[in-house]
Structure formats: structure tokens, C-alpha cells
């Protein structure tokens, strides 16, 4: 039981320990393991290009060999042709129209969600008051809103923006309110011991701690915004990628439809990558498998 009965080399009395041994727990954690992981990740990152490139090559070959009817599934080279036939300006016009709608709708919806989510996450009575209703509204499919918005707001820009804002609202709301609600009580106690007021607590502890959840909500909100944008533009629009889809269907041009789809994929991926880059900078402190140096 006593320390003296154990071997002295196993448990050196501290007062006599060498300085080196005394500082054993001061050495920074070894990082060799992390470095190998990083090296592997770098060497395999290009694999993400493999499926799309192989698919495009396969498709091109299949169409050229006549295995697939060209008018139903055009080859990638045909899509490039369609894109150039549409013309630089027209493509940019459609992309810009859609992107602008997403940008405005997403900004409105996400900002509102940030405010409401914060209120609900920070105040229990507000959560009890509002959360059940929001959960019910969240369950409504996007297309169900369209007739109502058309009736109320006409066929102008307003219903499209509102529909996109609705799409962005719920994921962000959920991310903010759940993130704030789930902050570790232990960290809150530290902040309370430091004498923080409730506003300082929210600003300096609750929001930073909820940031991972908030960022996940923002990214989901953005991707839903793109989806709701297409739903909005399918109904009544004269420009935008959703309009291009409708136009292609009405004129029986699969190449036009596919071009619009590819543009949507590229835009969605691009905007999500931008957010992800921002998220990783903002949450550099996270101790996750991914962020190990």
C-alpha cells in the first residue's frame, strides 16, 4: 500500500526526480501519427475526381458508340456545345439570376433564423412557446408553399425570394437553437465562476461553443436554398437555371436540361466549398479527427 514498499526506480520520490523526468508531462504531444495521416490524405485527395471523370468518359463513349440514344442522353461534348451555343452572356445571365435569388433569400432566411434560433436557444420559455410550431412548419414540403406564395405575392421575385428564405430558415434555426441548448454545462460553470453577465456569457461562451452546430446549420441551409430556388423557378420565371430546366423540357431538349443540372451541381458544390473553407478557418480549435495537424 505504501509508496516505500514499491521499487524506488519505479516511483522516484518527486523531490529527487531528475529535471527531465519532472518535465515529462510538459513535452508537447507527439505528432508523428498525425503527420502520416496528413500525408495519406494529401495523396488520396485526387480520388474525388475519379468518379465524375470516369462517368463523363464512359458516357461520351456510350453515346458515340450508339448504345444510348443521343436525344435522350446527350454526350458531355454535346453539353459543351449547348453551353457555347447558348452563349456566354445568356449562361451568365441565368446563373447570375439564380445565384442572386439564392444569395438574397438565403441571407434573409439565415439572418432571421439566427435571431429566432438564438432567442429560442437562450430562453427556455421561448423554446416552449415557439419550438413545437417551428417543428411542425419544418415538416411542410417546399412545393406545398408555392401555390400559397403565388396567391399572396404574385409571380414576381417576391415569392421566389420568400420560398428560398423558408428553405434556408429551418436548418439554420435548428443548428443555432440546438447548438446553444447543448453547450456543455461544465464550460458554463467556468464562465459563471469568472463572474460573467448573461450577455457576456452568450457572447463569449455560448455562441463560440455552439459554433460547430451553427455552421452545420448554415451549410445545410445554403444547400436547401439551392433546392428551393429550383422549385421557385420551375413555376414562373423568365430567367434562371430553373427556367432553363422548364425550357428544356418544353422544347424536348435533354441537352438543355442536363446543362442546367450540371451548372446547378457546380454552383452548389462551389458555394458549399466556400462555406466549408470558412467553417474550417473559424473552427480551427476543434479537436477532431479531421482537424488533427
Amino acid at each position: 500500500m505504501s509508496l516505500t514498499t514499491t521499487s524506488p526506480d519505479l516511483e522516484p520520490p518527486l523531490s529527487r526526480a531528475t529535471p527531465e523526468a519532472a518535465n515529462a508531462d510538459l513535452r508537447p504531444r507527439t505528432r508523428t501519427h498525425g503527420q502520416t495521416q496528413r500525408g495519406e490524405r494529401r495523396s488520396t485527395a485526387w480520388l474525388g475526381w475519379l468518379p465524375p471523370v470516369l462517368m463523363l468518359l464512359g458516357l461520351e463513349g456510350a453515346v458515340r458508340l450508339g448504345w444510348v440514344p443521343r436525344h435522350l442522353l446527350p454526350a458531355p461534348s454535346d453539353l459543351m456545345l449547348t453551353l457555347s451555343q447558348l452563349g456566354h452572356e445568356v449562361v451568365i445571365q441565368h446563373v447570375a439570376a439564380s445565384s442572386l435569388r439564392v444569395l438574397i433569400g438565403f441571407t434573409c432566411g439565415a439572418s432571421l433564423a439566427l435571431l429566432v434560433g438564438a432567442a429560442v436557444g437562450l430562453r427556455k420559455p421561448l423554446e416552449h412557446l415557439l419550438d413545437p410550431s417551428f417543428q411542425a412548419l419544418r415538416a411542410i414540403p417546399s412545393l406545398a408553399w408555392v401555390p400559397l406564395l403565388l396567391l399572396w405575392l404574385g409571380i414576381d421575385e417576391a415569392p421566389k425570394i420568400v420560398l428560398i428564405a423558408i428553405g434556408a430558415f429551418f436548418p439554420v434555426y435548428l443548428g443555432v437553437s440546438a447548438g446553444l441548448r447543448d453547450v456543455d454545462r461544465k464550460l458554463v460553470e467556468v464562465a459563471r465562476m469568472a463572474g460573467l453577465s448573461s450577455t457576456a456569457l452568450a457572447r463569449r461562451v455560448l455562441f463560440p461553443a455552439a459554433m460547430p452546430s451553427i455552421m452545420t446549420g448554415v451549410r445545410n441551409g445554403l444547400s436547401l436554398s439551392w433546392m428551393f430556388m429550383v422549385a421557385a423557378e420551375l413555376i414562373a420565371a423568365t430567367k434562371g437555371l430553373g427556367y432553363l430546366l422548364t425550357d428544356g423540357r418544353e422544347t424536348g431538349r435533354a441537352d438543355l436540361v442536363l446543362t442546367a443540372i450540371v451548372l446547378l451541381a457546380v454552383l452548389g458544390k462551389f458555394s458549399d466549398s466556400a462555406l466549408r473553407w470558412w467553417e474550417q478557418r473559424l473552427l480551427r480549435w476543434r479537436d477532431t479527427f479531421e482537424s488533427q495537424p
Partner: peptide, 12 residues
């Protein structure tokens, strides 16, 4: 002052 069982540092 209070020192807890876990270090409870703010990770950010």
C-alpha cells in the same frame, strides 16, 4: 476560485 476535476478550458 474553483478548479474542477477536468481542466475545462475553452477550446476556442
Amino acid at each position: 476560485g474553483f478548479i474542477f476535476q477536468e481542466a475545462r478550458l475553452f477550446p476556442w
